[in-house]
Amino acid sequence: MDLPKNAFKAALKEGRRQIGYWCSIRDSATVEMLANCGYDWLLLDTEHAPMGGTDTLPLMQAAAPYPVSCIVRPAWNDTVEIKKILDCGAQTVLVPYVQNAEEAERAVAAMHYPPRGVRGVAGATRASRYGTVKDYAKRASEEICLLVQVETVAALDQIEAIAAVDGVDGIFIGPADLAASMGYPGESSHPEVRKAVVDAIKRIRAAGQPPGFLSLDMSFCREVAEAGGQFIAVGVDNASLRQAAVTRREEWR
C-alpha cells in the first residue's frame, strides 16, 4: 500500500485557503456527520475537550470515508502524547502553546523518526496501515504536517524565529489565550486583540508560513482572511449545537 497523501499539507503548500471546523465532542457519529459537511479540515481537540490522544482513533476512522482532513491537537508539546497520536494515524498535528524556536524544534523532533527526530518506531499501527505501507518509517515525513500554536504576547515576539524552524508547516494564532495574555480574559474579540492577531497573521505570511486562526466571530474571521489567513476554523461543534438548541427554544416560547 502507498503512503496516504496529506491533502491539507498539499493545500497549504499550494497556497489554497482551507476552512475548518473544531470538534470537541468525543463521538464518532458526530464527527462522521461533520465530515460530510464540506469542510476542508476538522480539528480533533484533546487539549480543551474530554478526550485523550488515543480517543481520536475512532474519530479519524469515522471521518476517513469523506474528503476532509483531520488535524489533532494534543494537550501539550509532549513527545509521548504526540507519538501516540501519530501512531493512531494523524498526519497533521497542532501543538499548543509554543513560545519560541526551541519549543518549536522540540515539536518537530516529536513528529519525525530518527535521525531527524525522536519519534518511537512501531510496526503494525494505523499510521502505517498496520504494516502495509512500504518503507513507512523512511517516508512518513513526506506527509507529516506540523502546525504550532502561538497564543501569548511573548510568543508573538518570536514569530519570525518560530517560522524559521525547519519542519514547521504553519502557525496558528489562538485568540482566547492571547486575549488573556494581553489582559483581556474572555474578550477574544477585543479591539486590541484583533489588532494584535491581524498584525501576527501578516507577519506569519511575510515570514513564509501559512497562518491559521479560530473564532466564532465571523467578522473577526473575515478580517483575518483578508489579512492572509490560510487555514481558518469558523465553528465549534458544542457551541453550534447549543446555539441551535437555544434559538429553537426561543422560537417556541
Rank of each mutant, 00 (worst) to 15 (best):
A124L: 13
A124G: 04
T125E: 09
R126L: 07
R126S: 05
R126C: 08
A127C: 12
A127L: 10
S128V: 04
S128W: 00
S128C: 07
S128I: 01
R129F: 10
R129W: 09
R129I: 14
R129L: 14
R129Y: 09
G131D: 08
G131A: 09
G131I: 12
G131Y: 08
T132E: 12
T132R: 14
T132Q: 10
V133M: 11
V133R: 06
V133S: 09
V133E: 12
K134R: 13
K134D: 15
K134N: 12
D135N: 15
D135E: 15
D135H: 13
Y136R: 07
Y136V: 02
A137L: 05
A137Q: 14
A137H: 14
A137T: 12
A137D: 08
A137E: 12
A137C: 14
A137G: 06
K138D: 14
K138R: 14
R139W: 10
R139H: 11
R139L: 13
A140S: 10
A140L: 00
A140H: 01
A140M: 00
E142G: 00
E142N: 01
E142R: 01
E142L: 01
E143F: 07
E143I: 04
E143G: 07
E143R: 12
E143Y: 10
I144K: 09
C145D: 00
C145P: 02
L146I: 05
L147A: 06
L147Y: 11
L147S: 04
L147M: 13
V148S: 03
V148T: 09
V148P: 07
Q149Y: 00
Q149T: 01
Q149V: 01
Q149M: 12
V150F: 02
V150Q: 02
E151A: 09
E151W: 04
T152H: 09
V153Q: 13
V153M: 11
V153F: 08
A154E: 15
A155Q: 01
A155E: 00
L156D: 01
L156Q: 01
L156G: 03
L156F: 08
D157S: 13
D157I: 08
D157E: 14
D157F: 05
Q158F: 01
Q158M: 06
Q158H: 06
Q158A: 05
